[in-house]
Simulated scan of single mutants.
Amino acid sequence: MTNQHYGQFCGLARAAEIVGQRWTLLILRDLSVAPRRYSELVAGLPGIPTNTLASRLKELEEEGLVARVAPSGADRAVVYGLTPRGEELGPAMDALSRWGAGGMRAPRDGEIVTTASIASALKVAAGDGVVPPDWDTTYTVRVGEVETQLTMRDGVITVAPGAADKPDLIISAGPQIRDLLAGELDAHTAIATGVVHLEGDASLFERFADRLHVPYSPNVPAGA
């Protein structure tokens, strides 16, 4: 895949050789949310050079992590998706995402959110995703211009890109929703202070706040 070899017969070394290059984990993150056309990957990864994206996709295909789905019907665009081997990286990427989020209190200058980054963050915040089996609740979560949907149904939480068709509650928030997920704000305070704005059945927000958690790591500086 690359000329960078660590010279060790070690699983971590081999994994680093494959996924440790710049942009590779974010490409895999975006494809873990949903299969993507090349143009959708470019749009969802602002700043990635197109030659780098093309190279990374080729390398990931060669490693058996990504596959192209042949176009059919009127839509001739090639779609990239994860293979079963690529999907095996899910728990490792979730663990890295949770670890990284533990040190994030506010966006740094120039940092943005994307559909895949928010969907990934909510999936990680849901943890094991287990909820009472009688819950049947759908949320649209808006952060800036980005919309994702989160559903609690049949005892599990699922996350998908885009707004829900008929959400029970729309949650609009800015970066301070991070404090809510960390447990530093409760649901009532988040509403009262304008951290979130709700449309729909507001009583369902407490359920959302109670079930999604990504705590801050100890000793993280306030400006991190």
Results as ranks from 00 to 15, higher is better:
Ile48Gln: 01
Ile157Thr: 05
Leu41Lys: 00
Pro91His: 01
Val141Gly: 03
Asn51Ala: 11
Gly110Met: 09
Val220His: 01
Ala101Gln: 09
Ala95Ile: 06
Val19Pro: 03
Tyr139Pro: 05
Asp128Glu: 11
Pro91Arg: 06
Ser203Ile: 05
Met104Glu: 11
Gly100Ala: 12
Val124Pro: 02
Gly155Phe: 11
Val141Asn: 03
Gly64Phe: 01
Thr24Gly: 10
Ser203Arg: 14
Ala16Phe: 04
Ala164Ile: 00
Thr148Phe: 05
Arg142Gly: 12
Pro175Phe: 12
Gly183Trp: 14
Lys166Val: 14
Leu53Trp: 02
Pro49Tyr: 07
Val143Asp: 10
Ala121His: 09
Asp136Tyr: 10
Arg29Trp: 11
Ala224Asn: 10
Glu61Gln: 07
Glu63His: 05
Leu181Ala: 02
Asp186Lys: 13
Asn3Trp: 09
Ile18Cys: 11
Ile27Phe: 00
Asp30Ser: 15
Arg211Leu: 09
Thr189Arg: 12
Ile48Ser: 02
His197Ile: 15
Val124Leu: 04
Ala15Phe: 08
Ser117Val: 00
Ser217Val: 12
His197Ser: 15
Ala222Ser: 09
Gly129Asp: 00
Lys58Trp: 12
Trp99Val: 10
Leu57Glu: 03
Pro107Val: 06
Ile48Cys: 05
Thr115Tyr: 01
Tyr80Gly: 03
Glu59Arg: 14
Gln21Arg: 12
Tyr6Met: 12
Gly81Leu: 08
Met104Asp: 10
Gly64Thr: 01
Tyr6Phe: 13
Val141Ile: 06
Met152Thr: 07
Asp168Ala: 14
Gly144Glu: 00
Pro161Trp: 02
Ala106Pro: 07
Lys166Leu: 13
Ser172Cys: 14
Gly7Thr: 02
Arg37Phe: 02
Pro175Ala: 12
Leu82Phe: 04
Val42Leu: 09
Thr24Glu: 09
Gly64Val: 03
Ala101His: 11
Gln4Asp: 08
Trp23Thr: 08
Ile27Tyr: 01
